[in-house]
Computed example of a mutant assay.
Amino acid sequence: MMKPSAVIDLLARPLGVLRLSLTARCNLACRYCCPESIEPPGLLSTRDQLRLIQAACQLGAHTLRLTGGEPLLTDRLWPLLDQLSLARQEVAHPFSRLKDVAITTNGSLLNDEKARRLRDMGVDRITISLDAVDGASIARMAGLRTGPEAGKALIQRVLAGIDAARAAGFNPARGRLKLNAVIQRGQNDDQLIPLARFARTQGLPLRLIEYMDVGNRNGWCRDQVMPASEMIQLLHSNWPLQSLGRQPGGTSGQWIYEDGEGSVATIASITEPFCSDCNRLRITADGQAFTCLFASEGLDLRPWLREDISDSVLAEVMTGLWSRRSDRFSEERGLEQPANHHAEMAYLGG
């Protein structure tokens, strides 16, 4: 099998990760994400999605992350995984180059049957988002207007989802099951230690994410950003940590607890940008390609997904998009006034 042609951008960054959004809708209304209640028009078909994934693989992508909104909310997930799984088993197929197929979910819709289907269809990793372990806090963060009792019920559903994933074979000790938490000062920063304690008890790697200025609806304010360094300092005062650094092309700084009880990571897009080796291409549920999470506009790929357009032409268009890329918004944020408009988090797929 020929190796994929590694396309690089203007800053010599190769394409490595494709984040494909399946829906802009979500069953929650998290305050930092503000999802749509309806789908954008012109959603990609399964055939369209497969063509885009194939082109990305041919250009060097080795990781596919399926996102939303909430990807488990749409039935469009299953036919995509079915065909993707079959093609990954063919040595000569571009999909066989995918080392990792992952899905990000809030976990509230994950049950035994869905977890087994995900595992059987070749999903390698599940990341579950949980921003608090207290009923009132999670209700506030998830936009549940009915208060603490609804928050407690949500936590129980997420716990059941974690158990289902573990039972299906997603082993957190091997990095197959992780927990994400966005920490927003003044909103859920009091949940940092309880979340870490919960993750340690559950044997789950925990990724702590700085509150980001993605989109325009979340009322982002820098004062509400809790720096990753501060998060680590607080955790370290409870359970000493040892730094493992950040892998090239990775988004998170890695830490392990010195007592051997698991690991924690931080995604510090605001205070410790990692634009220099960012390798991610995002494609929305309606076919808009974004080369930066903080971009305001994407390239509509749907004209090149018509049946009369060849796969090679589609690959050329995506090559051109990536090779012209020079995005480094997070690094420039500290140098100049950032743009006032960004695409919304749920639309971009995070």
Rank of each mutant, 00 (worst) to 15 (best):
D189F: 09
F198T: 01
V17E: 03
I126H: 02
Q58T: 05
L154W: 11
Y257F: 15
I209S: 08
P205A: 01
R176E: 15
F198H: 06
V313K: 11
P172H: 11
E332P: 00
P71E: 08
R25C: 09
D48Y: 00
C34E: 14
L28K: 03
L130K: 07
S21D: 01
A173S: 15
M141Y: 12
I232Y: 03
G186P: 04
Q89M: 14
R222G: 03
S108G: 01
R197F: 04
V264P: 05
D286C: 06
A339L: 12
L118H: 15
R157A: 07
D75K: 06
R222D: 13
E113P: 01
L18Q: 02
G60V: 01
N106T: 04
L81I: 11
L28M: 09
T67P: 00
E258T: 13
G169M: 14
Q288C: 05
D286K: 05
R328A: 14
L144N: 03
D134W: 10
M318F: 05
D189T: 10
L52M: 14
Y257E: 04
N106F: 05
R176W: 08
P41I: 09
M345Q: 13
A165N: 10
I38K: 15
F329D: 10
G245R: 02
A167M: 13
P79I: 05
I155W: 11
E70V: 01
G334T: 11
